[in-house]
């Protein structure tokens, strides 16, 4: 294959993954330094009305509430707080947490929205696999993008290394970076 074609292929692969790489770079720093990036304040409160089926258990009731209100997110059972008249729960995903206060008798719901912010969302993409209850179809395609991005990143890496080894490497570079490669592998084996 011609050198110019390989460079183009490497470039196309790189352009496809560049935003994914930027997000992962930022996220890796946040993770490694255990930074707290989530916003914790309520930014919006709204009211609604829902149907309460008394025969449902807590999990089913929470799912029914999420569906009726059309709120996207997971329903962590450890956040459920229920008594005879009220049911408090959270609906959460990587970009937003919604706190629900449900009156079990009247069906009145108060929703407090806590958007986590841009940086937290960017960071959350690190763990995102496209599967969130009540998410629009577009978000479900993330798993395809993620898989493709990894595949393309690997191709880009192999092509870049091939181009370097075939056309431009210097002995000192090979020794230094080859040594760093072996050293990194040894460190990972010791973890």
């Amino acid at each position: 294959m011609k050198k110019s074609l390989l460079i183009k292929l490497h470039l196309y692969c790189g352009l496809f993954t560049c935003f994914y790489l930027l997000a992962f770079g930022v996220s890796s720093i946040i993770l490694n330094h255990k930074m707290e990036v989530d916003n914790k304040t309520v930014k919006k409160t709204w009211h609604s009305q829902v149907q309460i089926d008394p025969n449902l258990n807590d999990n089913e009731l929470a799912e029914s509430l999420g569906d009726q209100l059309g709120i996207m997110g997971w329903l962590p059972p450890w956040q459920f707080k229920k008594d005879s008249t009220n049911f408090n729960l959270q609906v959460t995903h990587l970009a937003k947490t919604s706190e629900l206060e449900v009156n079990l008798i009247s069906g009145a719901v108060i929703v407090n929205e806590i958007p986590k912010g841009f940086l937290a969302t960017l960071h959350g993409l690190h763990f995102f696999n496209g599967r969130i209850p009540n998410a629009p179809f577009f978000l479900k395609t993330w798993i395809v993008y993620q898989w493709l991005a990894l595949f393309v990143l690997f191709i880009s890496l192999v092509l870049g290394l091939w181009l370097w080894l075939k056309y431009s490497y210097r002995t000192w570079e090979l020794l230094v970076f080859g040594g760093l490669f072996i050293f990194s592998c040894l460190i990972m084996l010791l973890l």
Partner: peptide
């Protein structure tokens, strides 16, 4: 081709973030 890949990657990535933030 490069522009098409770059722009579509940008649109897809930031549309995902916007949907997550505002859906």
């Amino acid at each position: 081709t490069a522009w098409a890949i770059f722009v579509s990657g940008f649109i897809y990535f930031f549309l995902t973030i916007i949907l997550l933030l505002y859906w």
